[in-house]
Design a protein around this nucleic acid. Structure first.
Lengths: 174, 174
DNA sequence: CTTGGAATGTCAACAACGCTGACTTAAAGT
DNA sequence: ACTTTAAGTCAGCGTTGTTGACATTCCAAG
């Protein structure tokens, strides 16, 4: 049970000796970093009268164009009503297009319009810029470690979505 | 300008060659990891009818007992009214004690009661447990990298608070 | 001593974004 | 035909953030 992917945690060596104080610092680092992480998009969204929920929807639609509502629901982990409220405003404002499915006409496939893509690009670029700077400041190996810890921190099902999205454009059915 | 603390980014070598796709993965990793990070405390808080705001207040009061409201405001980055609502319920429920300042009687110094400490311990232990597992799975060097990237991702003023809190029990005045 | 301003607290109103529950419509599966 | 599924909608509620206005208390400067 203790022999996960960290193959080398033999007790002879350093053994990842972790004080509560070190763990607490990690917790606080997550708190402060997440605030930085969302600060730039939040500023941009405010200009357009949107919130973080809109950002998330736009992000994952950009990531998987043509995805349906149920799929988005599962990724975002919110209720249908919550997502719908956000999605409706995005569609009304002409940022998202909802196309009825061809094979299954119950499904709505979601796409970003030109306007939607441009907002997504603005948000994404701001966030990537911060990430780029952080990565550069921290160095190459730090980035690998960063990603490894974050993945280990996810819930297993969330990690599954995360890894599934690695194959960027793998639209299994089309 | 490009020569920050990452002294070794000479273009000859790897140069931290970062595609937008890699950065995007980092962004999504932050999103999913933060959800995991808050999942356990959220479940506990629900039992008591509290939310994340209560958790944050309790955490930082535990971290710096005797802190005043203005200080907490600055760390949490919310308005006085927002914090006050949370603080009031915590005081009413007997989790937090508010003592009038001795030198400056306008100030209220905040402390956790026994009950408050026990909730804090429950929340903190859940969160530390996840962090501990993530750290162990990711390995020793990954942890250092994780922390380095998170620090670089913070806003400078938030990073200042973060680093100031490293000296755990530095109660300058008492 | 009076007055200005800082620290705190309170009230009201509002917005974003979660939630539950109930219900409809349409299409698909059986 | 009947059931299930996907999606959308309406109503209502809770947490947590925001402004704005205002009272109180107290320190400190004039």
């Amino acid at each position: 049970m203790a022999d996960g992917k960290a193959g080398g945690t033999q007790s002879g060596e350093a053994l990842l000796f972790l004080t509560d104080e070190q763990l607490r610092k990690g917790i606080e680092a997550m708190f402060f970093a997440y605030r930085g992480f969302t600060a730039d998009p939040d500023r941009i969204l405010e200009k357009y009268g949107y919130g973080r929920a809109h950002h998330r929807a736009v992000h994952f639609i950009a990531r998987a164009p043509g995805t349906n509502v149920n799929n988005l629901l599962a990724i975002l982990g919110v209720t249908k009503q919550s997502l719908n409220r956000v999605l409706r405003t995005l569609i009304e404002d002409g940022l998202v297009e909802s196309r009825v499915g061809v094979q299954d006409k119950r499904e709505r496939h979601l796409y970003l319009t030109e306007t939607g893509q441009s907002l997504e690009a603005e948000l994404s670029e701001a966030q990537r810029a911060r990430m780029r700077v952080a990565y550069r400041d921290a160095g190459h190996e730090a980035v690998a470690g960063f990603r490894r810890v974050l993945e280990a921190m996810m819930d297993p099902d969330q990690a599954a979505y995360f890894n599934a999205m690695s194959k960027t454009g793998s639209k299994k059915e089309e």
